[in-house]
């Protein structure tokens, strides 16, 4: 009989005995305050910021930092947990036993073999700079009641690590939440893929006055509304002609030859479903109307007002067809 069935078939009495042992770990110290192997140093800061793509000069540019209010570089606050990592010895000789590993073993023995880090929350109190030494002290802060999760039944536990410097001042705290669970048989890969929600671009709602335009985009065409009364082109589409008040209209297809009137890139915030720093532009089409779209296929620095562009309708993500413009 495997662990999984053992755990699932725990009687209420057995579960109580098990949980009494489990909850005894609440408040237990995983490690007492101990220093990192290395002092805070510029080399590790540089490696970390390179990997993270963080170019803040406050971390890596001593010249800049000397002019700043702080007068010196600081370590990125989010690096707080890095300094006290065990390092490669864990891979070769394994992790030394401590109350957290003992608790994990006990959970494993009862079938809760699955492990999933679910949340990390850091709070920063004090800045540190090269030369400081980071100390860590950690406790098991809390353990949830038994939960039924999509992964299977299990318990969430949270460790609370307190980081301090060589003077004993708190630098910050980190809460790390882990789910230990009894793995359930997963549906076939293809079926689970269907449920994966990959964020896509936010679509326009489609109503009476604009739905036909977006439907044409889905078929690869960019149309421009044209008044049947006076032949005036208009975009965005509207139900009535502003020139002659006719409500009769048809449309023409744009050749998507255009010129950039203005442009920007949305650097912040990052929006799920969009490429990083999307470049948006107002483009005057050859037919005479303006349209807002993306500029792709070139660097932001190579874009200028007055530049000629050529558009085509492309599939930009799983669900979205959009006109996109390239340098002509």
């Amino acid at each position: 009989m495997g662990h999984q069935e053992e755990a699932l078939h725990m009687t209420p009495e057995e579960q109580k005995v098990f949980e009494d042992k489990l909850y005894a770990y609440v408040g237990v110290e995983v490690c007492s305050r101990k220093p990192a192997k290395d002092a805070v140093n510029e080399t590790m800061i540089r490696h970390w910021t390179e990997v993270m793509g963080d170019t803040n000069p406050a971390y890596t540019d001593p010249e800049w930092a000397a002019q700043s209010r702080r007068g010196k570089t600081i370590a990125p606050p989010a690096m707080m947990y890095v300094w006290n990592q065990e390092g490669y010895s864990v891979a070769s000789s394994g992790r030394a036993s401590d109350p957290q590993t003992e608790m994990a073993e006990m959970l494993n023995d009862h079938g809760f073999t699955g492990v999933l880090g679910t949340n990390v929350k850091q709070e920063y109190v004090k800045e540190i700079s090269p030369g400081d030494t980071v100390y860590v002290q950690m406790v098991i802060d809390n353990i949830s009641e038994r939960k039924v999760t999509a992964r299977g039944p299990g318990y969430f536990f949270e460790t609370l690590a307190t980081f301090s410097d060589q003077n004993g001042d708190t630098i910050g705290v980190q809460r790390f939440r882990v789910l230990k669970f009894i793995p359930q048989e997963q549906p076939a890969a293809s079926a689970s893929d269907d449920k994966l929600q990959v964020p896509t671009r936010i679509a326009s709602p489609r109503g009476h006055d604009n739905g036909w335009w977006w439907n044409a985009v889905d078929e690869g065409k960019v149309l421009i509304q044209r008044c049947k009364g006076c032949q005036t082109l208009r975009h965005p589409p509207r139900p009535m002609c502003g020139e002659c008040q006719s409500m009769e209209w048809d449309s023409i297809e744009s050749t998507l030859d255009g010129e950039i009137m203005s442009f920007t890139a949305l650097r912040h915030p990052k929006i799920p479903g969009y490429p990083a720093d999307p470049i948006c532009a107002v483009i005057k089409l050859g037919e005479g109307t303006n349209i807002v779209s993306n500029i792709v296929g070139c660097d932001f620095d190579d874009i200028a007002i007055g530049m000629k562009v050529k558009g085509k309708v492309e599939q930009v993500d799983e669900k979205t067809m959009l006109p996109q413009f390239y340098p002509a």
């Binding site: 671009r201 965005p236 969009y274 999307p278 779209s293 979205t320």
Partner: peptide, 11 residues
């Protein structure tokens, strides 16, 4: 619908 002319592009 108005914002729809800008949202899909990230504006």
């Amino acid at each position: 619908i108005h914002w729809g002319w800008y949202m899909p592009y990230g504006l």
